[in-house]
């Protein structure tokens, strides 16, 4: 490395400060979750696992977790199937029609969050889609589908079209070509899209806060209600669990890649 590319000390110190700012605020939920008393005091006075016990036994929290997982999984399935199909359609069509369709399909990603939420609420209210599962499913589907469209489209754009033609010329039908050639090629994009869809639904607060009723609440809504109305460290326990899962998700690709590259180098 020559003189022009070696980072100076000022740059390094700045980066360390930014790194701390990125991660440290997240970690504060961990000690609070083990607090002994019903308080958000930092550092906590005594330690206990009461709030974790509460999280997995209090019906309010368990049903919110159940609702969030149910909505998240269904939304992921719907978005992955519809989104992948649409991305394939867009890829085949090309031209202006495809550009217009893409614009419509990614619109939910561009419209400011609060505007989407209020618009959805105003119409779903008339269609009796508030306070029920179907409303959550539809709202989260439209909000999450852009991520599948975009990840699959970008996968398709880097796939060699000659592969499909080669398969067809060797006698494979369209379905067989899709399952054996196209799908494996775009699988990483579909997987990334599915993950985005799940996280988008699981994390969504704004639309859900309008569509919720006391009878049906997702986990972020239960957290929102809890933090607005009471001092209950259970929310810190939820946050810690989510943080641990998130860490696993973010680390996963690094580990699988390392293993596969080890395999590749050893063979």
């Amino acid at each position: 490395m020559d003189e022009t590319t070696r980072p100076g000390w000022g740059l390094r110190i700045w980066a360390v400060l930014v790194a701390v700012l990125l991660v440290a605020p997240l970690l504060i939920v961990v000690p609070i979750s083990f607090a002994e008393k019903r308080s958000f005091k930092f550092p906590p006075d005594g330690l206990s696992v009461d709030w974790y016990v509460n999280l997995f036994t209090d019906q309010r929290w368990t049903s919110a977790i159940g609702t969030s997982i149910l909505v998240g999984v269904l939304v992921t399935l719907i978005c992955t199937v519809l989104g992948t199909a649409a991305a394939l359609g867009i890829h085949r069509l090309g031209g202006r029609v495809a550009a217009l369709a893409t614009g419509v399909l990614v619109a939910p990603m561009i419209v400011p969050g609060i505007v989407s939420a209020v618009a959805i609420y105003s119409v779903y209210l008339r269609w009796q889609l508030t306070g029920n599962l179907l409303g959550f499913l539809l709202a989260h589907t439209v909000l999450a589908i852009p991520f599948v469209i975009v990840t699959v489209t970008s996968s398709l754009s880097t796939t060699d079209p000659m592969l499909e033609r080669a398969a067809a010329s060797l006698g494979a039908g369209p379905w067989r070509t899709f399952v054996r050639v196209t799908l494996p090629a775009i699988a990483p994009g579909v997987g990334a899209g599915a993950l985005f869809a799940f996280v988008t639904s699981f994390d969504e607060v704004v639309a859900a806060s309008f569509l919720q009723s006391p009878a049906i609440r997702t986990l972020p809504i239960e957290m929102f209600v809890s933090v607005t109305n009471e001092v209950d460290p259970t929310i810190a326990a939820v946050s810690t669990v989510i943080l641990a899962l998130t860490t696993a998700i973010v680390l996963l690709p690094a580990f699988t890649r390392r293993r596969s590259s080890q395999k590749a180098s050893s063979s």
Binding site: A86, L88, G89, V115, I120, S122, I145
Partner: peptide
């Protein structure tokens, strides 16, 4: 075929997102 693949997602987003934003 391409249009057929595109249609379900397009209809869902148009009815349950674009229309609400437009209506509001």
């Amino acid at each position: 075929w391409a249009v057929l693949l595109l249609l379900p997602a397009l209809v869902v987003v148009l009815v349950f997102f674009v229309y609400p934003v437009f209506a509001l």
